[in-house]
């Protein structure tokens, strides 16, 4: 069976769906067509849509599912975001810890399903995918970054 149907990654929206494969591509072979992708990325219409009652629960019930990943932004509060995600997963993963591990969550339940959760930017602070991406840029000397910062400031 193609990993496409056994491995799922849930993200907030279409932009995340486009960025994340580039990040993953640096670590794992991505493949050229859908059947070779290491995971199927499902984009929602925003974080509220992803966290609506029943969405994560039904993804976790997908036949033959082996692994489900969830990437969401912490925005203003990491703790409340983690609680929201955790509540959606508790039926399938009753033993999830109250706090999100700083290296992100990887859990396995009795059915052998793996659950991964990463809350942007780093499972520790508030922020979002963009915060995480900005941290990938070297501290000094990136011309495009410097140029963008300056011109954005001017715009503001």
């Amino acid at each position: 069976m193609s990993r496409f149907t056994t491995h799922m990654l849930l993200v907030e929206g279409e932009q995340d769906k486009r960025v994340i494969p580039y990040l993953l591509d640096a670590h794992i072979v991505w493949g050229d067509n859908k059947s070779e992708f290491p995971t199927n990325i499902e984009a929602y219409g925003g974080v509220d849509d992803l966290l609506a009652e029943g969405e994560i629960e039904t993804q976790l019930k997908t036949p033959k599912l082996q692994a489900l990943g969830i990437i969401v932004d912490a925005n203003d509060s990491l703790d409340s975001r983690w609680q929201q995600v955790r509540n959606r997963c508790l039926t399938a993963f009753p033993e999830l810890s109250e706090t999100l591990p700083r290296e992100g969550l990887i859990a396995i339940n009795d059915d052998g399903i793996r659950l991964g959760v990463w809350i942007m930017p780093d499972n520790q602070t508030s922020g979002m995918l963009e915060t995480f991406l900005s941290q990938l840029i070297p501290e000094e000397g990136d011309e495009l970054w410097d140029y963008t910062e300056v011109h954005l400031d001017e715009g503001v």
Partner: peptide
């Protein structure tokens, strides 16, 4: 498995709308 996988009414509607496989 030792148990069936049960979908509530809300879950049925959510899964059908998103096209998530239930069968």
């Amino acid at each position: 498995r030792s148990r069936s996988i049960a979908y509530s009414e809300n879950e049925m509607v959510v899964a059908a709308n998103r096209g998530t496989e239930m069968r």
